[in-house]
């Protein structure tokens, strides 16, 4: 068994490449999901009832779909619409699209829980439209969102492992590759799992740091 870890160590460059892809997919996917999620949250908070309920319906529907299903739908569906992707981009698109729904719901929940008075003060001071959101609403929403966004980022990191099924070269794919070639399943997958653990620990540490900054601003 220890021999297995030696083999994995010899091929640590492959794992490293996998981790870098996992990190890139997670971060870019999360950033896209947060940006689109914020836009969707604005629709979810719209005073227009019909708009609000229909968008809420779409968000709820998305949250009922397993991530792997959406990966397949994007992977097979987009070429059908004439848009051709490589696997990496298809995986990223699925990651961003899927998590947009979760991010929107997180941001909406926090937004609707914030006291409305400071938004009203901004209206009285002449804010309206996009600037009201970018200067007054979302800074407060994001200050309160740290822990929940952190949890979602951990979920995103774990979701990237599904992308091995469409052969995206991420961490689990790299571990699978090493194990298939040298037959060291134990060492290869344990190494991958420990790396996932470390990534999630880093996210949790980051959230704790951000919480300290946010504390003063509430």
């Amino acid at each position: 068994m220890m021999h297995g870890f030696d083999v994995v160590w010899e091929h640590s460059d492959r794992l490293l490449w996998g981790v870098l892809n996992t990190i890139a997919l997670s971060i870019v996917g999360a950033v896209l999901a947060v940006v689109f999620g914020a836009l969707v949250a604005i629709l979810l908070m719209s005073p227009n009832r019909l708009l609000r309920l229909s968008v809420q319906g779409l968000v709820d529907l998305m949250r009922c779909v397993p991530f792997l299903m959406l990966v397949y739908l994007v992977y097979y569906g987009l070429p059908h619409l004439g848009i051709d992707f490589d696997n990496w981009t298809a995986g990223l698109a699925a990651l961003a699209l899927y998590n947009t729904a979760y991010m929107a719901e997180i941001l909406r929940g926090i937004w609707s829980g914030l006291p409305r008075e400071t938004f009203e003060a901004a209206t009285a001071f002449g804010y309206h439209g996009p600037r009201l959101y970018t200067r007054i609403v979302f800074p407060q929403v994001f200050l309160a969102a740290g822990p929940m966004l952190g949890n979602q980022l951990i979920q995103i990191i774990k979701d990237t492992a599904f992308l091995t099924i469409i052969a995206v070269p991420e961490l689990t794919q790299a571990a699978s590759g090493i194990q298939a070639q040298y037959f060291v399943p134990f060492a290869a997958f344990i190494a991958a799992i420990l790396i996932y653990w470390a990534l999630c620990a880093i996210v949790e540490g980051g959230v704790a740091l951000i919480e300290k900054v946010a504390e003063a601003r509430r």
Binding site: T160, A161, T172, I193
Partner: peptide, 11 residues
């Protein structure tokens, strides 16, 4: 809680 189900399943 940090382990993807896919990876655990392969393991």
């Amino acid at each position: 809680r940090s382990t993807p189900a896919v990876t655990l399943c392969l393991l």
